[in-house]
């Protein structure tokens, strides 16, 4: 494909692959990748080596002495394990709830005539864009009076609010792309509508459900504000809040917190590596309407 800035090399008479321009842009890209990935690498290094190496002068750019002390510490501390467990509980539940509610609504919007559906869908998207802080005051009151303050349910519902909008949009575009003929054909063949849905639509929709669930999972995993105001104490604290609390501690155990931070980010990297396409689809859902 022709590029916006390409062609310097060709004008100099050098052919495509080893052009001066190609080399320059390759170097630039390489430098960019290093700068972007360095903070992540530094965190992982800090979690697996003695502190003296991290804070030494000059700092050891590559770990010399590898130790699992920090990980042993966080995996033997029930409180630290609890943070991890809480994050998993909240994230999985949010993913299931948003995909469940989202799939029903998306199917409704895609296959049935809903009065004002265009307006409703755009409003959902607009509401999702508003900063969470704009509703936290009444949200906090609502959670308290409904008795879901300091429960998993409260945090899961808060996270679902924001993940649901994206879920509906993503799943709707997915269902739109499944031809109605398939369901109709199945109905003619003696399936009722529910069976048609179960046997025909659901299998075709499965990748979309996984992808949307991934996005909701990421959203809940990374939530900090709602987890801060909707709970109290250590019992229900997710990792993000535990990490945030580190900033207010007087005695900072950088080693252990970097291990926890690594545990909080490695699953994201894993998810990203395997489900990259879905993450990208979710992140572009608001900006690119198909």
């Amino acid at each position: 494909m022709a590029s916006a800035l390409g062609g310097f090399g060709r004008r100099l008479g050098v052919q495509s692959y080893f052009s001066l321009y190609g080399l320059l842009s390759g170097l630039l890209m390489f430098a960019g990748v290093i700068i972007v990935l360095f903070p992540i690498a530094w965190m992982v290094f800090a979690s697996m080596r003695p502190l003296a190496e991290t804070f030494g002068s000059p700092p050891a750019w590559i770990p010399r002495e590898v130790t699992g002390d920090a990980y042993a510490k966080i995996f033997s501390d029930p409180r630290q394990l609890r943070y991890q467990l809480n994050t998993y509980i909240i994230s999985f539940s949010t993913a299931i709830l948003s995909v469940g509610l989202g799939a029903l609504a998306a199917y409704g919007f895609s296959r049935f005539r809903i009065w004002g559906s265009e307006f409703i869908l755009l409003t959902i998207m607009a509401l999702q864009m508003l900063p969470g802080v704009s509703i936290i005051i009444p949200f906090y009151n609502l959670a308290r009076s409904a008795g879901v303050w300091n429960t998993y349910l409260g945090m899961i519902m808060a996270d679902t609010v924001f993940a649901l909008a994206i879920s509906i949009w993503l799943l709707k575009s997915y269902i739109d792309s499944i031809p109605t003929d398939l369901e109709e054909a199945a109905t003619v063949d003696g399936c009722n509508r529910f069976q048609a849905l179960y046997k025909i639509v659901l299998p075709l929709l499965a990748p979309g459900l996984v992808g949307t669930g991934t996005f909701a999972f990421l959203y809940a995993w990374n939530d900090f504000v709602f987890a801060t105001i909707l709970r109290n104490g250590h019992e229900l604290m997710p990792m993000t809040v535990a990490i945030g609390n580190f900033f207010t501690q007087a005695n900072r155990d950088w080693n252990a917190i970097m291990a926890l931070n690594t545990m909080a980010t490695l699953p994201l990297i894993a998810i990203f590596v395997f489900l990259q396409r879905w993450v990208i689809e979710g992140m572009t859902a608001g900006a690119l309407k198909e």
């Binding site: 972007v36 993000t240 931070n261």
Partner: peptide
């Protein structure tokens, strides 16, 4: 893929990475 990576991180996680840097 490498260049999108920062986007998947939570603010607290990246705040902590940068506090260390």
């Amino acid at each position: 893929g490498l260049l999108i990576l920062p986007w998947v991180f939570s603010t607290p996680a990246s705040a902590l990475m940068w506090a260390l840097l």
